[in-house]
Design a protein around this nucleic acid. Structure first.
Lengths: 213, 213
DNA sequence: GTCTATATTAAGATAGAC
DNA sequence: GTCTATCTTAATATAGAC
């Protein structure tokens, strides 16, 4: 449930520092959080942090590593089962929705990274964090769609990411948008809706028609 | 094309300050931009800013007002035409895609606001910025879908927002994700794909089935 | 309206004792 | 490994001259 999971190969104190820092950075951002804030959350003084991390940037890097590492593990289980492809897609979206809606730290830090759009970190996120799930998702999608249609699987995959991330980042804005109801607070309902949209988008995709402005 | 449009009822100097501040805040964020940075961009000294705005927060508020005010105007034109509903949806998504992909300032500030998730500002964004387009979009969607199916229009609207925003915020990450091709850099192609996904999601939506975990 | 000079605060980081 | 004390820098903001 919590993202700052097994920060393996980190000493216990460093691990605690990273956990606290992750929470604070996710909530308020890199710039608003001072080394003193992090130290206070760990019940130590600021200079002690520098025994474990050379500077604030290094600590932030360690946070990203810890939070984003092995995100694939939980969801990967779905792929090895013997469900039909469509049901696999259903389960992957449901599990991802629960994960991303409950893991505030993961979601905020990802959103922040997309804001920064730093090329190196984007590459890290894409290849180390997302790639595995994406490739397996791609396989499922290609099983679902009839060969004749050949939809754009890159677009489908990124749309899954976008819908999952956006719907659970919408937060307080949702209630003020037209048609909002109580059921839109329900994670499983939103997952269901996302599943249907992706599925129909993949299954009923018309032949490509790029030039029809 | 640029977001910091008619900051009407602002004196010329204040208007220039807001424009420069908008660009800087969008790029680097509130905390990383100092009053000195803004002043330098305006070719004045920092204390002069305080003649126009009482403090940094007030200036930021003015920026949000200026950037987010009257976003609806451009897109609203589509709604009054005599196209078929489906073609209206197509055009709205295409124009919105072009707008949101080209207006870096608008997109970054919106992304930043969703990160902060401040209730008051979320209400402002939803009701003053988004509501008009959303209501008209809702009308189009209800014309498209067969009455018998009755899909969730709130979900459909927020999905349009999410897909538009996410696909153009993905930036440098996209190229590192599976299946990326050159055509995924093309705004009109992405708009086309988004249109198909929303349309099929609305048209082919199955009867609601909320309890089928 | 804009400037120079400055007050105030708080940040990142280091030195060196324990 | 953690601490106290401190250095250095840079931020917001104000006072008051022009």
């Amino acid at each position: 449930m919590n993202s700052s999971g097994n920060s393996t190969q980190l000493k216990p104190t460093a691990r605690r520092i990273v956990e606290q820092a992750a929470r604070l950075f996710a909530d308020q951002g890199y710039d608003l959080i001072s080394m003193r804030d992090i130290a206070k959350a760990c019940d130590i003084k600021a200079p002690s942090l520098y025994h474990h991390f050379s500077d604030k940037q290094s600590l932030y890097q360690a946070v990203l590593q810890a939070v984003f590492a092995q995100q694939n593990a939980e969801i990967a289980e779905v792929f090895v089962t013997q469900m039909a492809a469509e049901e696999k897609l259903h389960q992957v979206i449901l599990l991802s929705a629960r994960k991303i809606s409950s893991d505030h730290v993961f979601r905020q830090l990802l959103w922040r990274e997309l804001l920064q759009n730093d090329p190196e970190r984007m590459q890290f996120l894409a290849e180390e964090v997302m790639a595995q799930s994406c490739l397996q998702l791609q396989e499922i999608l290609q099983q679902i769609q009839p060969n004749s249609l050949q939809t754009d699987s890159h677009f489908a995959i990124t749309s899954v990411m976008g819908l999952l991330l956006f719907h659970f980042q919408l937060g307080a804005m949702r209630q003020y948008l037209p048609g909002a109801q109580a059921l839109h607070q329900d994670v499983d309902y939103l997952a269901e809706q996302i599943f249907h949209m992706i599925k129909s988008g993949v299954v009923y995709a018309p032949p490509q028609r790029i030039n029809d402005k």
